[in-house]
């Protein structure tokens, strides 16, 4: 079964002992769970005052590892976001960029994002919105960052109807709240979990809008891959979630 992982990161995380892998080491870690291609960002961009330092590390790390596709992080709340985007496009090729509204302290529903959305559309890029990186119950005690509120996601989807975005790190109940009113989003499933979660989600949400993500290295790569591999769902849905949707969405 072909698997494309849409939620992978390089770099260390300050609160748990995740390894600071090289590109080839990350590729080997993913391959051990049957994942041959992945969309990769760098965790350092979450906390740095400006993401390009770690975006440059990302491009350098994946340069000679063809299975790892760079997804640089842009902070559109900074005055230089156009420069960030331009440098990433020059360093590319890239298929998408990622944003972290909660870590970078801006509202996803803000109209200030309008020019940014127009710019990435002009560049032919997809947008990944990271909703969360960890279960809020287990975060570092002094970190008070919560997941992106559903209300902001809904406002964003309403405001940018012409854009189809991918929410990564979204919870199943959040998908269910957004689904009735919004068709312009897909959901990455690393943080969707109850027993038979994919089977249950498919009853109300199309397979064409679910994408595999492992949240490596913060969550178990094998555990997340097995969630799809062992799912009691039709083979066609499995193929779409595992690779087909990512291939189409990111034009791979």
């Amino acid at each position: 079964m072909k698997l494309i992982d849409t939620n992978v990161n390089l770099g260390p995380w300050p609160f748990t002992p995740v390894p600071d892998r090289t590109g080839p080491e990350l590729a080997a870690q993913l391959a051990a769970s049957g994942i041959r291609r992945a969309l990769v960002s760098h965790l350092g961009a979450v906390f740095q005052p400006e993401p390009m330092v770690t975006n440059r590390k990302l491009f350098a790390a994946v340069k000679r590892t063809p299975g790892l596709l760079p997804v640089p992080v842009i902070n559109p709340a900074l005055a230089n976001w156009r420069e960030q985007l331009a440098e990433c496009l020059a360093a590319g090729p890239i298929r998408a960029v990622k944003i972290f509204p909660n870590y970078h302290n801006y509202s996803l529903g803000s109209r200030k994002l309008d020019p940014f959305m127009a710019a990435i559309a002009d560049a032919g890029l997809r947008l990944i919105v990271n909703v969360r990186l960890e279960d809020e119950r287990h975060r570092y005690f002094a970190l008070r960052i919560k997941g992106v509120p559903v209300k902001q996601m809904a406002a964003f989807l309403t405001r940018h109807r012409d854009h189809h975005v991918l929410f990564s790190g979204i919870y199943k109940p959040e998908v269910e709240k957004l689904a009735p009113d919004h068709e312009n989003f897909s959901a990455e499933v690393a943080f969707c979990e109850i027993t038979n979660v994919l089977e249950i989600m498919l009853a109300k949400f199309p397979a064409s809008r679910l994408l595999l993500g492992t949240c490596t290295p913060l969550l178990s790569t094998r555990g997340q891959a097995d969630k799809l591999r062992c799912a009691h769902i039709p083979a066609r849905a499995k193929a779409l979630i595992g690779a087909g949707n990512a291939r189409r969405f990111f034009k791979l």
């Binding site: 979990e193 027993t195 178990s220 097995d226 062992c230």
Partner: peptide, 18 residues
């Protein structure tokens, strides 16, 4: 332990196997 039906056996077992 899985905590089913709150959690997914495949994921919780894969976490150990991996």
């Amino acid at each position: 332990g899985s905590d089913v039906p709150i959690r997914e056996n495949s994921c919780t077992i894969g976490r150990i196997i991996g």
